[in-house]
Design a protein around this nucleic acid. Structure first.
Ligand code: FES
Ligand code: FES
Lengths: 154, 154
DNA sequence: TTGAAATGGTACAATTTCGGTCCTATTATT
DNA sequence: AATAATAGGACCGAAATTGTACCATTTCAA
């Protein structure tokens, strides 16, 4: 199993490609460039459009264009839009009023919620901008720490 | 979709329960305590035993007991043992020699590998011990920071 | 010595999710 | 009018997940 579904992966490809092509692009173009099934990709782009990431233009020279700023799009946002909201376990989803009978005496509930939060923090922090250009943005913290710990900053 | 499968969740419950019951316990006991299907749980315990987490003892008063130290069991370890090794996307699994045609010009490959590493780091760092007692171990950093930021440390 | 309670191993069935398709309508350009 | 695109669905097949069944083996105790 992969953490990100194909849908998610393709959505990221679409958003990235459209960022690199500010004049927009069609589902056909993108699907052929990345060798992805056209109708499947089209479905995803519809969703992205519907959720305000893309503008759409019908007709012969139509297509989609990115309208939200990459810095304002977190991985968490995209997952939510795709109806793939992050949950660590079945027990951690609040929908469907908790049926877990162990809830009151579960030995791992508290600990797991810590892990849940840590991963969710990453998903909320990492933006499309960071995916597109890992050095400039978020990861700089990691690099910075590494440099310090290696004594490379004079 | 949940990040952790039921198998994984149940495995954690088993390991935790056995840690709290050093004299051991049977699949029957645990399945009834947590209202989990007995045969399914038994399968998981077999795997855990086979991978060196548990010792088994057959016969009337048999059962399983935890033999690895909780501090030495990371979430990543358990996932591997359960054949659920973590991968961020299909593209990030090295098995089945990469078939992704976009690999050479993929706009998100580098950025994604950063995210992959961050999550994997968490999975490798968090141990069963931390799940069992979140305050004592790993999360203390978080709590510490929070206290500081709230000015509670005099 | 016999039976019950446990694990060991493996194969199988049911269910759900995922990945992908298809069809029709609408809009815009030429 | 023809073509190329999106819009919005319903739909389907395959694979993974989840759970079951069966039978063998070991151990203990009555
Ligand atoms: S297993 Fe449901 S709360 Fe822990
Ligand atoms: S999608 Fe395959 S390497 Fe990026």
């Amino acid at each position: 199993m992969s953490f990100f579904s194909r849908k998610m992966d393709y959505a990221l490809l679409v958003l990235s490609h459209l960022h690199n092509n500010p004049d927009g692009s069609s589902a056909r173009e993108i699907s052929s460039k990345f060798s992805i099934s056209r109708p499947f990709l089209a479905n995803i782009m519809k969703i992205l459009c519907h959720n305000g990431y893309l503008s759409s233009h019908r007709g012969v020279h139509g297509g989609y264009a990115l309208i939200r700023k990459p810095e304002n799009i977190s991985l968490s946002d995209i997952m939510d839009s795709l109806d793939e909201t992050f949950h660590l376990t079945d027990c951690s989803k609040e929908s469907e009023k908790q049926t877990c009978k162990a809830r009151t005496f579960c030995p791992i509930r508290t600990g797991m919620s810590g892990v849940h939060d840590r991963i969710r923090t990453i998903l909320k922090d990492v933006t499309l901008a960071e995916i597109l250009d890992p050095v400039k943005t978020g990861n700089s913290l990691q690099f910075g720490l590494e440099l310090v710990s290696h004594g490379s900053i004079k």
